[in-house]
């Protein structure tokens, strides 16, 4: 196990290094420059600025300097936000996104699991069918369409909830719902399939024959075993949360990391772009690692060592 985790951490570092280099060279190929977005600067002024940020050095030197700074945890400074260090910007924005993401994840999985349980124990009833329809619709329709419709109908037409910004609890409701749809749908579907399968297995019949109450069968025997494979959907959920933050923070003007990333893409602010890219990659790799380790803990039949199938 320890050896496996170390091996995986090695791959993680390699992937991160690769992404750091890849994003660096891509940003060097960028046609625009963040300095040209500001008010018109004369060539001489541009020259001074390029010199100041070391952008006149040969690319390999810049690359080595970037990697060197990276190893010391320095991600450079932003060009748009008056020389603020990228690390500070990221640290101020990550909590907002984490709050939104966790809230959506918790709301989504809990409601989704309840929906899946209901659908499984009332298999082939109208409840099952409606739960099915909800999960197909939730998986299919992109979160930004949901967010747009919510904002228009609930926020503008009915005026029930604030349509933008972040801070008070009511402001978090609509973005949370929009972001929670996918986790809700996918966990409902998964819960249903797994629970139906588990409830048909022999040990459930045994428990019933022994006279265990229905509730105890469902919660103690059924649910516990059906929860295990739910780990598999963590990956798609993480991806959907990442994609979701990019658009939903944009739609609801939430000062999170996704909104910052999109703004920086628009202004060619490459130091923030590289920093955010690394952060997203780190988050993603971490989720994959956690999923793989959880697999091994939950189901010992999956051999971890050696990584062979």
């Amino acid at each position: 196990m320890a050896r496996y985790i170390i091996q995986r951490l090695g791959y993680m570092l390699m992937t991160l290094f690769l992404i750091a280099s890849f994003s660096f060279f891509l940003m060097k190929l960028l046609p625009g420059s963040p300095l040209k977005m500001e008010e018109k600067l004369s060539d001489a002024q541009l020259e001074i600025l390029y010199e100041k940020y070391g952008l006149n050095d040969p690319v390999p030197i810049q690359y080595l300097r970037y990697i060197g700074n990276l190893l010391q945890g320095d991600l450079g400074v932003s060009f748009q936000l008056s020389n603020q260090p990228v690390t500070d910007i990221l640290l101020s924005r990550i909590p907002v996104s984490a709050h939104l993401g966790l809230q959506a994840l918790i709301v989504g999985t809990i409601i989704g699991m309840l929906l899946g349980i209901v659908a499984a124990i009332r298999n082939n009833s109208w409840m099952d069918y409606s739960a099915n329809i909800i999960s197909v619709v939730g998986i299919s329709i992109p979160s930004f369409i949901f967010a747009g419709l919510l904002q228009y109908y609930v926020g503008v037409k009915l005026g029930l909830l604030p349509i933008a910004f972040w801070g008070t609890f009511p402001q978090t409701i609509m973005p949370t719902i929009a972001l929670a749809i996918f986790p809700l749908a996918i966990s409902a579907r998964f819960m249903r399939t797994e629970l139906i399968e588990v409830m048909g297995s022999d040990y459930i019949v045994t428990a019933r024959a022994k006279g265990v109450t229905k509730a105890a069968i469902l919660f103690k025997h059924g649910l516990r075993n059906a929860l295990i494979p739910l780990v598999t959907v963590l990956g798609p959920m993480a991806v959907s949360l990442m994609t979701g933050t990019l658009v939903i923070e944009q739609i609801f003007s939430i000062p999170g990391i996704g909104e910052q990333f999109v703004t920086s893409v628009m202004t060619d602010d490459f130091s923030i772009i590289m920093g955010t890219t690394l952060f997203f990659a780190f988050f993603f790799i971490l989720v994959i690692l956690i999923i793989d380790i959880l697999y091994g803990i939950i189901d010992p039949r999956i051999r971890l060592a050696g990584g062979k199938e």
Binding site: Y11, V239, F261, F280, A281
Partner: peptide, 10 residues
């Protein structure tokens, strides 16, 4: 380990 989305955007 590379998030698709970020690479696509870059």
């Amino acid at each position: 380990g590379i998030p698709n989305l970020v690479i696509v955007i870059l």
